[in-house]
């Protein structure tokens, strides 16, 4: 089986690993004859390149988790993919997630792994850590028991964990160690694509930094792509190469993280960034009035217009398209670049 493991092509050029085209995934509820659609993912197109950390930011209920569940092919009713496609290309294997579910199943863990939200509870509380590795990763590695164990132990050591944690129960580990174990679990098969759904939420800032460093290091060593989801803009600033801002199920802006922080094009991005505290700045942070719209009944036109300080008439009538922005990304705003948050 080693040939299969060695088969992964070397990281060379920035090719696209993930391509999403006009993806629409709705929670469809048919209750008492009333059909209700919650448009959690509503027409999103994006690409993730090899060897990059791609951030997805947005408020709670902006559809971040729905988006990544959809792209991992891990959706369950009542959620449904209504339109669009998700394509992965791992080396020579190309997978259309919703057309070839069997191929996708084989790729999971081997090529694509998932660090789930609330990953503190990813480990079964009544089973030892080694069983988690056996259950989740063993069959994807194609090794015999002993080689697998050695592989897991050396992998844990690389991540700064004592191999003895394999014999421990989850409650015997600290929060940071558990998080490390979860990351080890997700990366032990050396996947090309890692989805991380808020892996640092509920950790204190020191452990958070530690975990981010670890994730970055693993990513650099494996040369894999990471989709990193969190609402915490400071985490995005620290770890991501490119950043996408989601608002009410749609992308508002996408671009290189640094350029976006320096020069946000979308008014919503500008507000998210302005809400970050900076050392030395003692002025009160302004919050954006209002709350995210209901995805069952979103506002017309640009979904941000009811809260947008610089909205014009056109914003409530037409839906802005994602167009190339001045900083080398894309933005969906009729007044892109005219941002004034001071």
């Amino acid at each position: 089986m080693t040939e299969v493991l060695d088969f992964k092509p070397a990281v060379t050029q920035a090719q696209d690993v993930l391509t999403i085209r006009d993806l629409k995934a709705y929670y469809v509820n048919d209750m008492f004859g009333v059909r209700r659609e919650v448009r959690a993912v509503d027409g999103i197109s994006l690409t993730v390149r090899r060897n990059e950390v791609y951030g997805i930011a947005g408020e709670s209920s902006s559809g971040k988790t729905s988006l990544i569940k959809t792209l991992a092919g891990a959706i369950r009713p009542p959620m449904r993919v209504v339109d669009g496609s998700v394509n992965f290309s791992f080396g020579d294997t190309h997978i259309d997630v919703y057309a070839e579910p069997e191929k996708m199943k084989a790729a999971r863990w081997q090529n694509l792994s998932y660090i789930m939200q609330g990953s503190m509870s990813v480990l079964n509380p009544v089973r030892r850590i080694k069983h988690a590795f056996n259950d989740f990763a063993f069959r994807h590695m194609g090794l015999d028991r002993r080689a697998f164990r050695q592989r897991v132990e050396s992998h844990l050591q690389k991540l700064g964990l004592d191999p003895n944690v394999l014999e421990a129960f989850p409650h015997q580990l600290s929060g940071g160690m558990r998080q490390r174990v979860t990351i080890a679990l997700a990366t032990v098969c050396e996947p090309e694509f890692i989805i991380a759904d808020e892996p640092t939420t509920a950790l204190d800032v020191l452990v958070q930094q530690d975990v981010l460093g670890l994730l970055k290091e693993v990513q650099a060593r494996l040369g894999s792509s990471v989709v990193f989801v969190t609402h915490d803009m400071s985490v995005h600033a620290a770890i991501t190469d490119r950043l996408a801002i989601m608002y009410a199920g749609r992308l508002a802006e996408e671009g290189p993280t640094q350029a976006m922080f320096d020069n946000p094009q979308h008014p919503y991005t500008a507000h998210l960034i302005a809400s970050l505290p900076r050392i030395g700045d003692v002025s009160t942070r302004k919050s954006l009035a209002g709350k995210p719209p209901s995805l069952a009944n979103p506002p017309s036109g640009c979904r941000f217009h009811p809260r947008c300080p610089i909205a014009i008439d056109r914003c409530s009538k037409e839906v802005p398209e994602m167009l190339p922005s001045a900083i080398g990304g894309r933005v969906a705003c009729f007044r892109a670049g005219e941002v004034a948050v001071k």
């Binding site: 863990w109 789930m116 988690a132 990763a137």
Partner: peptide, 11 residues
């Protein structure tokens, strides 16, 4: 989460 994780990993 561990059930979802298990299902995702293909158990």
């Amino acid at each position: 989460e561990f059930t979802r994780h298990a299902a995702f990993s293909g158990m």
